[in-house]
Each structure stands twice: as C-alpha cells, then as structure tokens.
C-alpha cells in the first residue's frame, strides 16, 4: 500500500512543474506504468484524488498507459515478452531472463490549463 506515497510524489512533481511551466490547473495526468512497478492501479486511482486535493491537480483525470514486460534471455539472446519475473523464456524455456522493460513508473505528460 505505498500507492498513496507514490501519488504524493506525483503531486509534488506536478506542483513543481506548475511553477516552472506556469500553469494553474491540470486536466489530465498521463502516466506510464509497467506491470512490475509494484503498483496496484485501483489503489493508485483512489489515492490520487486524496493526494491531489487542494492543489493544481485537484479533480484531474489520471490516465495510465500500461507498458509490456520485456526481457532479454541470457541463454538464447532473444528479446522476449513475459508476464512475470519468474517466467521462463517462451522460446528456449530458460529461467535466465533479465527484465529490461515493465518496471516503468513515469509521468509522461500533463494536459493543463
């Protein structure tokens, strides 16, 4: 349940950007989140409303772009798509898969007024 502190981080980045880039209201926050980032989306959406209250991002819509989990198989040197960290390589069956994508936890862009 660290989604609330993640949301506090999101809101603090937005508040900083509001000063730097001179905007007073945020309509949409677009995030890129990988399935391995350890984020429960339902909890994130719930926490965001709480964290954003009283600031420039109050009532903003949170949009999440879900990223794929990509791994590099050490055994067969292929870049493969897997679901979990402990999944075997779908090509050769080896467990020596190094995750290269799917851990994203990023604010991509904001729609602001």
């Amino acid at each position: 349940m660290h989604e609330l502190s993640i949301c506090e981080n999101i809101v603090s980045v937005i508040e900083e950007q509001a000063v730097e880039q001179s905007f007073g209201k945020v309509k949409t926050v677009r995030l890129e989140i990988g399935p391995l980032a350890g984020i429960e989306l339902e909890a994130l959406l719930f926490s965001f409303d709480v964290a954003a209250k009283g600031g420039v991002a109050e009532n903003a819509t949170l949009e999440v772009i879900e990223m794929p989990v990509i791994g590099l198989c050490i055994s067969c040197s292929q870049s493969v798509e897997v679901k979990e960290r402990y999944d075997p390589c779908p090509i050769c069956g080896s467990f020596q898969v190094q995750i290269t994508g799917g851990e994203e936890l990023r604010i991509k862009e904001l729609e602001v007024l």
Partner: peptide
C-alpha cells in the same frame, strides 16, 4: 505546497 498563477490556455506539458 506552491500555487502558480493560472494561464487559461489549454496545452500539453511533456514531463517524462
């Protein structure tokens, strides 16, 4: 937290 003066024009801000 900080509050910024408002602009009324809608726009996209790339954060990354």
């Amino acid at each position: 937290h900080s509050h910024a003066p408002g602009f009324t024009q809608e726009r996209m801000v790339q954060i990354e």
